[in-house]
């Protein structure tokens, strides 16, 4: 029998702990496939966040670290500096990266650390049960914004790609969506590029995935995708912000 689809070598057999319809698993798979394609499995290592992806250290099939909430870019910095012969990525949610870990991500990007950061933006704190995130949309209801996010009180959602794009050092910054099969194919290309640049030691690479949290949004997975397309994509517009590799070629 011909095998046409199988688990990437870069994922272990440990079953994902994600809710049905959650996109974390898709993001994991894209990253694992790209690592397989680049033949990096023996030199790859990553950092799991605090958030629903906290168990990512069990899911990726190579050495992994688990970091304190928001600190993954600092941990990855220590790893890359200690083992320059290895390739390092972090995997982080919006609470982890854009709230408690804002300093760590900005400064790792600003130093141009040779790491890849995969950022899953689901506009909410998934793991802790649906509290407001720095990326929660205006007027969006969460358990800690029960009357909707009031922008006069708590500010607007933070657009991280745009923020990092103000820095000189980052090599590659792209925002993609996981909200349709076609978008996932595009997202795959962004992940491939980040991992390829990582392998080539080009510098800091960053991919944001606009994602969903059906469970805490109180929507079924299909409706969550529709809601995200209608509400998240206008605010978090997918696009390529920075590709120094392409600039060099042209």
């Amino acid at each position: 029998m011909e095998v046409i689809a199988k688990r990437p070598q870069s994922l272990t057999a440990v079953p994902f702990t994600y809710c049905p319809g959650c996109m974390h698993g898709v993001a994991h798979r894209l990253i694992a496939e790209a690592i397989d394609e680049q033949g990096l499995i023996n030199k790859m290592t990553g950092v799991a966040p605090v958030g629903c992806a906290v168990f990512a250290y069990k899911f990726f099939n190579f050495d992994m670290a688990q970091a304190a909430h928001g600190r993954a870019p600092a941990v990855a910095t220590g790893m890359k500096r200690a083992r320059p012969d290895m390739h390092v990525f972090t995997y982080q949610g919006d609470g982890d990266l854009a709230a408690i870990g804002t300093a760590e991500i900005v400064h790792a990007a600003n130093r141009g650390e040779h790491i890849s950061v995969f950022f899953v933006n689901n506009a909410i704190y998934g793991m802790t049960g649906g509290q407001m995130a720095p990326t929660t949309l205006p007027d969006m209801k969460t358990t800690t914004s029960p009357y909707g996010r009031k922008v006069d009180d708590i500010g607007y959602p933070i657009r991280i790609c745009e923020l990092l794009d103000t820095l000189v050092a980052p090599y590659y910054i792209e925002r993609v969506s996981l909200l349709s099969p076609a978008d996932i194919v595009k997202a795959k290309r962004a992940v491939q590029k980040a991992i390829q640049y990582n392998k080539e030691e080009r510098g800091f690479t960053f991919v944001e995935f606009v994602s969903t949290c059906p469970t805490n949004w109180g929507l079924d997975p299909a409706k969550a995708q529709v809601w995200a397309k209608e509400n998240m994509l206008p605010f978090f517009k997918p696009g390529l912000f920075r590709d120094k590799g392409a600039e060099v070629k042209s």
Partner: peptide, 9 residues
Amino acid sequence: NMVYGAAGC
């Protein structure tokens, strides 16, 4: 946390 990463190596 950088220490954590390097010590982990």
